[in-house]
Amino acid sequence: MVKANMEDKRKLKDEKLMMLINLYDDREAFEIIMDRYKKKILNLVLRITGNFHVAEEISQDVFVSLYLNRKRYDIKGKFSSLIFKIAINKSFNYLKKGKELPLDSEKFKLRDNSLTPYELALKNERKRIFEENLQKLSPVERTALILYTKEGKSYNEIADLMECSLQSVKNFIHRGKLKLIKLVEESTKKSSGEEKNV
């Protein structure tokens, strides 16, 4: 059995932790993996599905399926790619069922104590506009955009994760950004127009 304590295990790389899970069904190692990735996975799924409760349910299922399939884990592959791939597949499967729910904008609100209430309100409004418009992009466009800008993945990595060609990834990002620029601009104009009217 594995003698290393929790602190020692925390220093291990994902792939080594996965080996412990694979060989010894080590739940401590699995918990470390979960702590490392749950936030990233939840937020990626949240951007794809748009609903917090759905995203949390799917994220839990991602880890469940990772653990249940631990014996099939291939050490040669990069672990982060594997877990992102599972999350993307599960999210798209959810969307395929046509269960898209309205955007959970409450979850995206900032709670920054360093800002004045006015600044915070302004920033939150800007953020709300952005999040709403991000949700108007197609699921593939917003997934590619999040992976590219927020997760810092390369075009090749995204193509591998989304199981599409390099050119498609380039198109998703290019089209997505242009759309987002246009949508944010329109919404900001609309919002400032409404303010003036008030």
């Binding site: 990233k40 994220s59 979850k107 955009l145 927020k150 944010v184």
Partner: peptide, 13 residues
Amino acid sequence: INDLLEEITYVDT
């Protein structure tokens, strides 16, 4: 847009 994308805050589980 890059700033806004970068500013995306991660929600806690």
